[in-house]
Design a protein around this nucleic acid. Structure first.
Lengths: 338, 338
DNA sequence: CTGAAAGCGCTTACAG
DNA sequence: CTGAAAGCGCTTACAG
């Protein structure tokens, strides 16, 4: 169905290399030849065969993105989606394509259980997104050569890119202090995936909150808010939904959880208590603009990751200096502690 | 770096086909030969070259997933992520890999703006996820042969799979009626992407609500809730946050928007008014279990889509009969209309 | 049971 | 300015 270079060449009585050169804009040709080739390619619906190109060039222009979402964690970290779409935006404009790979593929001992991206050589490089487990680091390195660590616990001098989570925790907490908080409550995300360590953002954001509290001379207590927040959480948060208290939510999910708890008790952040969130997601701008929040633009972050990957895979192939990605702050009004 | 079949063959003094046959478990060989080949492959770290295989087999075992998220719509439909991870789960276990493609790639007139998956032949098939625009249908068909329409407005006798959105609207509304609603409010998602038509779920869910209202003899009014819900929405919803009123939210986002509006007014669904949602997402189970909701399991749906794609791409390549994907209902308690 | 040969569709020296 | 040739790494008939 799809025409090949040879078919076009035969059709025109030219050689395959000539057609190839013209279509790839290499070399000099009589304008007439050029025209004929271009017209024929158009007419016959020529589309290059990616596999043949990849084989010849020894480059697939394809990268993998490792995320944790598999059957065991179907709803995990949906905010990664924003980074992934940003990554896609950045990669596609540079001629790359990417595939999604699950952490469980990386960790599978049985090769048959692994994704084909590891069973066969098909990736130029890989991006590990939002990973917290040490074991992932070890395995990925051994499977694919060029790796970029994005928003991952792994941090080294090169090939890592990471948002400034400390600033997020600090900015959110400082807003609460300015809003009149006499005590701060840190909402500890007990996410359950503790095998191999929590994501670094947990300690970074918390450290930012602790420093802000210390500097302002206000107390900070931590309470646990599992992802699956049941009535127990409703009860344990109850005593903190009071004037003078500022709650620092680890992420957008926990902020929503607090809002729902408040709603059940006919309370409202920014009036009866203070609330600030250490994560920014698009939805907040749509239906909760008054939420005080600090965090990074995940879509733009994904684009920055794409840039790093592409540089890493380009000619030189030199390791890229690790970078920190900046944080934004949205003042909002929920930081008013009543 | 990566060993090839030829290198293994030379290393052992065997022929390339022999090595290939052994590694692919084809043909009969002396146990000793088998062992030697397997050992050498292991030792030299042999990994097949996907491009060479693809070229030889004329199959890439790669599919594309078209979604709407691009620079212009970065936060659009994040719930698609759950379907995508389910799709990934289903595809990878069958040896497929997938790439993400943006609708804007499909629509780009300038080939240079398109994703490489269209500029080159690299996909065996494509899944169009959650698309509403007619133009997408036309273009995709012309770019890639085998297409599955998943949760898309396009519906035909074959190669389509679609959740039963009518049931979602109906089940959510009936729950409100049972909960004592004397009038229903349909929350119309004015999503703004009207070029080419709204997603079919809009009319289907609404029709379910209308039928439920008609059968119960209660009134139904529609009010608009843009994705970006500002103070105007807070005002327009205010008069409906009253006992005897049941609000049917088009999706999870709008349900959260209503909750936040209620919170600002110190009201609570299930006590001061009724609320039901036509979409199910994992987060609801975690922090809002009492929300009355109907919808489909997006992760499992993704797996079902994977099954259809794989069947479509398998040997016969025969078109697959279109199917409807079932809906679930979670009773919750917010359907009590006070 | 094993090997020699052909060919998938491309690109890149190289020769004319 | 254009063409003949080689080769990327695999698989699949076919021959022995």
């Amino acid at each position: 169905m799809a025409a090949t270079l040879r078919q076009i060449a035969e059709h025109l009585g030219l050689s395959q290399p000539t057609v190839s050169h013209v279509l790839n804009n290499r070399g000099q040709f009589r304008p007439e030849t050029r025209q004929r080739v271009l017209a024929a390619a158009q007419k016959l619906g020529y589309v290059p065969n990616a596999a043949a190109r990849a084989m010849r060039n020894n480059r697939t222009f394809q990268v993998g993105v490792v995320i944790a979402n598999d059957r065991a964690h179907p709803g995990h970290a949906p905010q990664n989606f924003f980074a992934i779409t940003g990554l896609n935006e950045g990669l596609q404009s540079r001629g790359y394509v990417f595939s999604v790979v699950r952490v469980s593929d990386v960790l599978a001992e049985d090769p048959q259980q692994q994704s084909r991206v590891f069973r066969e050589r098909m990736l130029d490089g890989i991006v590990v997104l939002n990973a917290n487990r040490r074991i992932v680091e070890k395995r990925v390195g051994s499977l694919v050569g060029k790796t970029v660590w994005a928003d991952a616990s792994h941090w080294a001098t090169h090939n890592c890119i990471r948002p400034d989570e400390y600033a997020a925790g600090r900015l959110a907490s400082e807003a609460l202090v300015r809003g009149g908080a006499r005590r701060l409550v840190w909402l500890d995300p007990d996410i359950g995936i503790r095998d191999g360590g929590l994501h670094y953002s947990f300690s970074e954001r918390r450290r930012g909150a602790e420093d802000a509290a210390a500097e302002a001379g206000v107390s900070l207590v931590g309470i646990t808010c599992s992802r699956r927040a049941n009535k127990l959480f409703d009860q344990s948060i109850a005593e903190y939904l009071t004037p003078g208290t500022g709650i620092v939510a680890y992420d957008a999910l926990r902020a929503r959880t607090v809002a729902l708890s408040a709603m059940r008790k006919r309370l409202c952040p920014g009036e009866n208590f203070g609330l600030a969130c250490c994560e920014i997601v698009p939805e907040q701008e749509w239906n909760w603009p008054e939420l005080t929040r600090a965090g990074f633009d995940r879509f733009a972050f994904g684009e920055a990751v794409a840039e790093m990957v592409v540089s890493l895979l380009d000619e030189s192939g030199a390791p890229q200096l690790s970078t920190r990605y900046p944080c934004q702050f949205v003042q909002g009004s929920t930081c008013r502690c009543g």
